[in-house]
Design a protein around this nucleic acid. Structure first.
Lengths: 211, 211
DNA sequence: TGTATCCAATACGTCAATGTATCGAGTATG
DNA sequence: CATACTCGATACATTGACGTATTGGATACA
């Protein structure tokens, strides 16, 4: 975290402008898409004019990359906190699974805006090689973090997987993504019965007691 | 299928132009995105000028909807054919699962272009209410078809699910989507070990013999 | 063979968005 | 208190994409 109060006021102000522009970009990109969002719209959402924008960013592309970096950092922080195994020791197995899933759901910040921006990044990553490499690197790290999370969570429950770790991770993350996407598309709450009932049960069915 | 040869030549020619424009749109939309693709680019991909375009479509939006309809039709056709249970009777269980998965993989036309266009539609569906309703209706139909496919496939194997059908469908479709997305992002083949090994085994683990 | 019809090409006006260059206000510093 | 500087606002030139209106040419039909 940056030591905000030790900076000079001018620097603080500039940083605040940048943040406001990034916040606005998140909202507007979610609403209009990366290509559809104009610099103008982002600026009026932030309460600035384009002058402020070009004083802080060289182009829309630069803004998008900066936003991606910021969101990625934040995602890692949340995921790493969720992966801390100290908090689900000694719980009954099914309760613990519930706790883990709750934390995962919270950690993923299942709000519409985040999903939309992330999907935009992803699509751009598949399409554009340069952006793609960056996105792939970030995605790999998320996956690595999630696999560590899964392993330590199961370990805390005294169990280990009987299928490949990467397969388990894909199944859980894929099911979560799809459930969230369908919920957003149909404008209804996410299917908790699937995420907190069926999916954990399924996962536990392919584990064995350790030792 | 349209009865191409019974139409008058002028009508045939017009229809061919439309198809060429739709094909071009598929390619260009995959490359540049719905918002990023200009009518100009679509036309030069098709080998026409904008005059031809506006002679056949009122706007880019109309073209996009027409493309969506065409792709959806095609997807349904393939999925319904794959769901025909007559072809996997009497097979050994694991072999049959392999056949089913192969067919599903083929049916989903796992090429990059299709994935990108579909993802564009989906994103637009989440964002835009009007498009959203259409996309949701189409997605529901795909899901219904897939659930029917899954049920009849398992039935042909003499088994039935012990978990909710919709949950099983989400898990399988979600895993497939995610595996495909990761493969495209990392530019490598899709993980067949997951799709033809782990996932079917997992699914069979939550079924019971019928009767 | 001549004519009518239809389709795609060309040319044009409009508009929105971009990025740059300049200006004015607020703030740090001596 | 005065001056220099930085940041954000305003104004402007440029670009490119859209949709329309019109034209040229190919094909069907008498």
């Amino acid at each position: 975290m940056a030591q905000v109060s030790t900076e000079r006021p001018a620097v603080r102000r500039r940083a605040a402008t940048r943040e406001r522009l990034l916040d606005a970009a998140r909202t507007v990109l979610a609403r209009e898409g990366i290509q559809g969002a104009s610099v103008e719209h982002i600026c009026e959402q932030a309460g600035f004019t384009r002058g402020a924008f070009y004083s802080n960013f060289a182009s829309k592309d630069e803004l998008v990359l900066a936003l991606f970096d910021r969101e990625r950092e934040q995602m890692f922080t949340v995921l790493r906190a969720a992966a801390d195994p100290s908090s689900f020791e000694g719980l009954d197995t099914l309760d613990a699974v519930g706790v883990i899933m709750d934390r995962f759901l919270l950690g993923q910040q299942q709000d519409r805006e985040w999903y939309l921006v992330h999907a935009e990044f992803e699509l751009r990553g598949v399409r554009d090689d340069a952006v793609g490499r960056e996105f792939v690197a970030a995605s790999r790290q998320v996956r690595t973090d999630f696999e560590a999370f899964l392993t330590s969570a199961l370990e805390a429950l005294g169990r280990r997987l009987t299928i490949e770790l990467s397969h388990a991770a894909t199944i859980v993350m894929g099911t979560y993504d799809t459930a969230l996407r369908e919920a957003l598309l149909e404008d209804r709450p996410i299917d908790l019965g699937l995420l907190k009932g069926t999916l954990p049960a399924l996962l536990l069915a392919v584990t064995e007691p350790v030792g």
